[in-house]
Simulated scan of single mutants.
Amino acid sequence: MKEISVTELAAQKQPVIVDVREPDEFQALRVPGVAHIPMGEVVERIAEIPDDGPVYVICASGGRSARVAEYLASRDIDAINVAGGTFGWRDAGLPVESGA
């Protein structure tokens, strides 16, 4: 499985990022500009995930996103797990959003 650090991801130009956490987690804290597809909905919403370039998958710390990235890769989607997740992003001092 491919992985990227939060600082490497932050340096990417207009990355496609999918956050797979639960809605309450997403509302509380998120990386700006991410798409939200909870892990439990990925299979039924896979058509919403672009398959024409890398898709960076993020969760809280990297566990759920790793499982989703593996699933997407098995469906021939170039999925890359974000090591450290949203908490790693925040802890690196990168911008975050919260609320609706």
Results as ranks from 00 to 15, higher is better:
Lys2Tyr: 11
Lys2Ser: 11
Lys2Trp: 10
Lys2Ala: 11
Lys2Leu: 09
Glu3Val: 07
Glu3Leu: 09
Ile4Trp: 01
Ile4Val: 14
Ile4Arg: 03
Thr7Phe: 09
Glu8Val: 03
Leu9Tyr: 05
Leu9Thr: 09
Leu9Met: 09
Ala10Arg: 09
Ala11Pro: 02
Ala11Leu: 07
Lys13His: 12
Pro15Leu: 03
Pro15Gly: 02
Pro15Thr: 05
Val16Ile: 13
Val16Trp: 10
Ile17Trp: 06
Val18Trp: 04
Val18Leu: 07
Val18Gln: 05
Val18Arg: 01
Val20Arg: 02
Val20Trp: 01
Glu22Arg: 14
Pro23Trp: 04
Pro23Lys: 04
Asp24Ser: 09
Asp24Gly: 02
Phe26Asp: 06
Phe26His: 14
Phe26Ile: 08
Gln27Gly: 13
Leu29Gln: 10
Arg30Gly: 04
Arg30Asp: 01
Val31Leu: 09
Pro32Gln: 07
Pro32Tyr: 06
Gly33Ile: 08
Gly33Ser: 06
Ala35Gly: 10
His36Pro: 03
His36Arg: 04
His36Met: 08
Ile37Asp: 05
Pro38Val: 07
Met39Thr: 04
Gly40Cys: 02
Glu41Asp: 14
Glu41Trp: 13
Val43Gln: 13
Val43Pro: 08
Val43Gly: 07
Val43Tyr: 14
Glu44Gly: 13
Glu44Ser: 12
Arg45Thr: 07
Ile46Cys: 08
Ala47Glu: 14
Ala47Cys: 13
Ala47His: 13
Glu48Ser: 13
Glu48His: 12
Glu48Asn: 13
Ile49Tyr: 10
Ile49Pro: 05
Ile49Asp: 11
Pro50Ala: 10
Pro50Gly: 09
Asp51Asn: 15
Asp52Asn: 15
Asp52Thr: 15
Gly53Pro: 07
Val55His: 00
Tyr56Glu: 05
Tyr56Gly: 03
Val57Trp: 00
Val57Ser: 00
Ile58Arg: 06
Ile58Pro: 00
Ile58Trp: 01
Ile58Ala: 03
Ala60Ser: 12
Ala60Asn: 14
Ser61Glu: 11
Gly62Pro: 11
Gly63Asn: 14
Arg64Ala: 02
Arg64Asn: 07
Arg64Asp: 03
Arg64Trp: 14
Arg67His: 13
Arg67Val: 11
Arg67Ser: 15
Arg67Ile: 11
Arg67Asn: 15
Val68Leu: 08
Val68Ser: 00
Tyr71Pro: 02
Tyr71Glu: 04
Leu72Ala: 04
Ala73Asp: 11
Ala73Glu: 13
Ala73Val: 10
Ala73Gly: 08
Ser74Pro: 00
Arg75Cys: 12
Arg75Ser: 07
Arg75Lys: 14
Asp76Val: 00
Asp76Gly: 09
Asp76Ile: 01
Asp78Pro: 01
Asp78Gly: 02
Asp78Cys: 06
Ala79Cys: 02
Ala79His: 06
Ala79Thr: 02
Ile80Tyr: 05
Ile80Lys: 05
Ile80Pro: 02
Asn81Asp: 06
Asn81Ser: 05
Asn81His: 08
Val82Asn: 03
Val82Met: 04
Gly85Tyr: 10
Gly85Val: 04
Thr86Val: 15
Thr86Lys: 05
Phe87Gln: 12
Phe87Leu: 13
Gly88Met: 07
Gly88Gln: 04
Gly88Ile: 05
Gly88Cys: 08
Trp89Asn: 01
Arg90Val: 09
Arg90Ala: 15
Arg90Asn: 13
Arg90Tyr: 10
Asp91Lys: 10
Asp91Met: 12
Gly93Thr: 15
Gly93Met: 12
Pro95Glu: 06
Val96Pro: 06
Val96Gly: 03
Glu97Asn: 04
Glu97Gln: 13
Glu97Ile: 07
Ala100Glu: 15
